[in-house]
Design a protein around this nucleic acid. Structure first.
Lengths: 188, 188
DNA sequence: GTCTATACGACGATAGAC
DNA sequence: GTCTATCGTCGTATAGAC
């Protein structure tokens, strides 16, 4: 077959969607090759550390994009409640209204390696910190703000689990809708 | 080796703990044999449908025990808020204070087969129905009660994800503590 | 009903040509 | 940097003795 040049971004995107959909162990190299458009050996050229490195780079990459596209705008100027509603819209898109699994969950079973686990943990903490910052801005003390932030994230993660099992995504939509209240913003 | 007679209950317990810990795909037959104390061929004698049947029976078995040990007491006599606090204590034990993963999550990645998926869905719905019943008893209308129930379950499931990734189980403990309020019971 | 032994395909990973 | 071809291992699953 003629060599296909696939951009690094496309490779990471294909990897990400595959891991997100079926988890770490169930994503075989054959499926990864299909999803990325690269042969196995080409994948090993880009990821000498093998499947574990793929998972680690996926985790780190998603963490970066999540922080940049979704969390960073939270710190911009503008009314606090509007910023929170904006992040809710971004999350709804990111998780396809609740029908797409979260990589924090999908990559946390099996043996993805410590690099991936560390990246997941860092991403989860960055998310919590960003939400906690909002909660502090709304007037809550640091410890309480972090608790509210974690709980708001858990509501979303749990809703994704429920949606994946039952097919019912209303739980996710509610979690997004009450996000301002969950983070301790005053009612309208 | 001399034949070891292992009770069906012990086999199911070993299977359950293994699947819970590492998910469906990562649980290999070799590990399953170690966890149950049976050889692979003995496992196939008990589960002719192979690994998928093992997952299905684990899902069904846990659903049964969950319904019997944790949900059924919710319908017994006694003060409503005390019954809910009791279920909170049971859940704390069941999930080892948040450090043990939920099979709803662990068995929902990979290809566990439709029998297992159906059992998971049934278990999730039974849980939601039981919580919704509490919420109705507290005076909420059916649709609202179901929403509160799903959200309360999502808070727990999400907290388990957070705890698994970050090691921080406080989120789980908070979800249990606010369970009465989450289900719409009046404050003390 | 459990065991030992094995079949056989798929798995992650590598070699080497281009 | 991608390809074709292949390696050794481990995966699920079976055969057949006891």
């Amino acid at each position: 077959m003629a060599p296909r040049i696939v951009s690094e971004e496309d490779v990471l995107t294909g990897l990400t969607e595959l891991f997100r959909g079926c988890g770490y162990e169930a994503a075989t190299l054959t499926e990864i090759a299909n999803a990325t458009g690269l042969q196995k050996s080409s994948l090993y050229h880009r990821f000498p550390g093998g499947k574990q490195q793929m998972a680690a780079e996926v985790a780190a990459g998603v963490g970066e994009r999540f922080a940049k596209d979704i969390l960073a705008p939270l710190g911009k100027d503008g009314a606090l409640d509007e910023r929170v509603r904006a992040v809710g819209r971004k999350l709804t898109e990111f998780y396809a209204s609740g029908h797409r699994a979260c990589l924090l969950d999908a990559l946390s079973f099996g043996e993805p390696g410590s690099a991936a686990s560390d990246a997941l943990k860092a991403a989860a903490n960055a998310w919590a910190d960003a939400f906690a910052s909002v909660s502090r801005e709304a007037g809550h003390r640091p410890a309480e703000a972090l608790a509210l932030a974690q709980d708001a994230i858990a509501a979303i993660e749990g809703a994704l689990v429920i949606a994946r099992i039952t097919g019912d995504n209303r739980c996710f939509l509610r979690a997004i809708k009450r996000l301002p209240a969950s983070l301790g913003l005053p009612p309208d």
